[in-house]
Nucleic acid binder design. Structure first.
Length: 571
DNA sequence: ACTATTGGCGCG
DNA sequence: AAAGCGCGCCAATAGT
């Protein structure tokens, strides 16, 4: 049963705190009125539920405090967590069409007092935290992310269906009737059957393909491409080609287009809309649901095309994780290696390792906990050169191996290991424990150590990226106001009366974020504003670094490209 | 006929 | 078991 009203507070330094329990129909106009001061912050149960409705009414807000996302962070961080109120969902709402008003909320809807009480609890919890300033920044960034996620869904990623179809046709042949294999795949399948003497083989069937390969004398234990790649046999080339194209077909073929890309309107490209899930990954990274948005392969990025007269500004932050680690650890030497742009080149220049590739492999091993192969040889050199940085991740791993929890720089806490983990560790300590018990426990403890090792780094990098994006959004909104003289800046009635006029929607000359991928963002902008957008992205990256690490001299350089289509950025 | 798991592979 | 972290999604297959 869907509630017909929503409770929200608005805190505003210029107007004090007010709250209302308001009908959904009245919500947009009320919100728009409060926004006019320019200093309002909304406190509401769940941005993912509320904001899409505001967006479809043409209303955007500057900032909010998302009680659901904040609770999730505070619950793990607080010494004395409180249970989530029944009205506060612990999972993001099921995606739904904006026209449907039901199914969006948990069992009961909060009163205004409920909302105010939960807010007070969160503020108190924040105040009691070891570092309230950082945690406050994290909650603000997480909440800003929720606004951005909803806005990117509403605006969509520009997607040219025709260009996508050209890519598919060139790779696979014409679109087959449903259920049939495209021509090119059928050809390759025939070759594979011939070369393996396996008539009737379906290359999509892993089990039968593996048998056929072994019958042909290939000593493989899987059909994974990394294993096949090293083999000398005439079937390898067509087989790898088959796998590459079959993947393209199943992940981003014609069916994908039909499901995920809405048609273009008058000269404009269509749009791809996924559901972004802020905080969807344990480390604080975003997840997505629908369309595989975080795995858009390089092969189809040429179909991401700006509207006529518009550009895509693609910004990719270089080596965010080691930079975040340098900042956290206060490692001056590692920070210095990253000063000139390419941190891995910096490692080579400082004589720590001899090639860029080895620098990268070694650094990733330090961040992920790898020990095998070449990494084993490089790691000791990294430890000697960067004892503070490597010491930090080594300690995080040690905590994890003992079953403890770790925190990111801003204070996101790792989830503790589950019951199964504890059980296995417990069994290894019992008097009748056998070898396999101990081995399993040790192996599982090391797994946990690699998780916590990486958690602090990946999570802090995600925090930097959130701050970067939130700061970018803030500045893009200023461009919006400045670039649109038709919107009065003096708060005159004409400016606030027409909600649709005020709403910065694509097509009205407004640069806006359209894509986010861990350390990369894409802004869709009128072409003449592309240089300004690049400047904003750079400034925002610098600001994000300062928000996290203050005066510590760690830089966050970007690769920037203003391009008509995504493939041309090609970092 | 349905759901859960597996192997594989795309992205960072 | 890709050398190590984090994901989502697909087709085939196993389980019910």
């Amino acid at each position: 049963m869907a509630p017909t009203r929503v409770g929200a507070l608005v805190t505003d330094p210029s107007a004090g705190t007010t709250g209302r329990l308001v009908d959904w129909e009245e919500l947009p106009s009320w919100v728009q009125r409060q926004e006019a001061t320019g200093t309002a912050r909304w406190v509401w149960p769940d941005t993912a539920t509320i904001y899409p409705r505001l967006l479809s009414a043409g209303v955007r807000v500057a900032r909010c405090h998302d009680l659901r996302l904040s609770h999730a962070i505070l619950r793990l961080a607080a010494a004395e967590p409180w249970p989530a109120p029944s009205w506060l969902a612990t999972a993001p709402p099921e995606p739904s069409t904006p026209s449907l008003l039901d199914d969006l909320t948990p069992d009961s809807s909060p009163s205004l007092e409920d909302v105010a009480t939960e807010h007070q609890r969160q503020l108190a919890s924040l105040g009691a935290a070891p570092d309230p300033g950082r945690l406050r920044l994290l909650l603000a960034a997480e909440s800003a992310g929720a606004l951005i996620a909803a806005e990117m869904h509403a605006d969509g990623l520009p997607w040219d269906r025709t260009r996508h179809e050209e890519i598919l046709r060139a790779a696979l042949g014409p679109r087959p009737s449903s259920g049939m294999r495209p021509a090119r795949l059928e050809e390759l399948a025939a070759q594979i059957r011939e070369l393996l003497h396996a008539p009737g083989l379906n290359p999509d069937s892993q089990a039968t393909l593996l048998k056929a390969l072994r019958n042909a004398g290939l000593e493989v234990t899987s059909t994974a491409k990394w294993e096949l790649g090293g083999l000398a046999h005439p079937v390898i080339t067509p087989l790898l080609e088959y796998k590459r194209l079959a993947r393209l077909l199943s992940a981003n073929g014609w069916g994908w287009l039909d499901t995920w890309v809405t048609p273009g309107v008058g000269g404009r490209a269509g749009r791809f809309r996924t559901d972004y899930v802020p905080g969807g990954v344990v480390t604080g990274r975003w997840a997505t649901s629908g369309g595989g948005a975080l795995q858009i392969p390089k092969a189809v990025r040429a179909a991401v095309v700006a509207d006529p007269g518009w550009m895509l500004v693609v910004a990719d932050a270089a080596q965010v994780e080691p930079r975040a680690l340098a900042g956290m650890a206060g490692d001056q030497a590692l920070a210095a290696a990253g000063r000139d742009g390419d941190l891995y080149a910096g490692l080579v220049a400082s004589g720590v390792v001899d090639t860029r590739e080895r620098a990268k492999v070694g650094m990733l091993s330090a961040l992920y906990g790898g020990t095998a192969g070449e990494a084993g040889a490089i790691l000791p050199r990294l430890r000697r050169a960067y004892p503070r940085a490597t010491g930090l991740v080594d300690r995080a791993a040690a905590v994890g191996e003992r079953g403890g929890t770790v925190r990111t720089w801003l204070g996101r806490t790792s989830p503790p290991p589950g019951d199964a983990w504890q059980t296995v560790q417990g069994r290894a300590g019992e008097v009748d424990a056998v070898d396999t018990d101990e081995r399993r426990a040790r192996s599982q403890a090391r797994d946990r150590g690699r998780f916590t090792r990486n958690f602090v780094v990946q999570g802090t990098a995600a925090e930097w990226a959130l701050c970067w994006m939130a700061e970018t959004r803030r500045r893009l909104r200023e461009v919006d106001a400045g670039a649109r003289p038709d919107v009065a800046m003096d708060g005159s009635p004409s400016a606030t009366d027409s909600l649709m006029e005020l709403a910065p929607t694509p097509g009205q000359g407004v640069p806006h974020l359209v894509f986010f991928l861990h350390d990369e963002v894409v802004v869709h902008t009128p072409a003449h504003l592309a240089p300004r957008v690049e400047e904003i992205l750079r400034d925002a990256a610098r600001t994000a670094g300062q928000l996290l690490f203050g005066d510590f001299p760690i830089s966050f350089p970007l690769h920037l490209a203003s391009v008509p289509s995504y493939d041309l950025a090609d970092h």
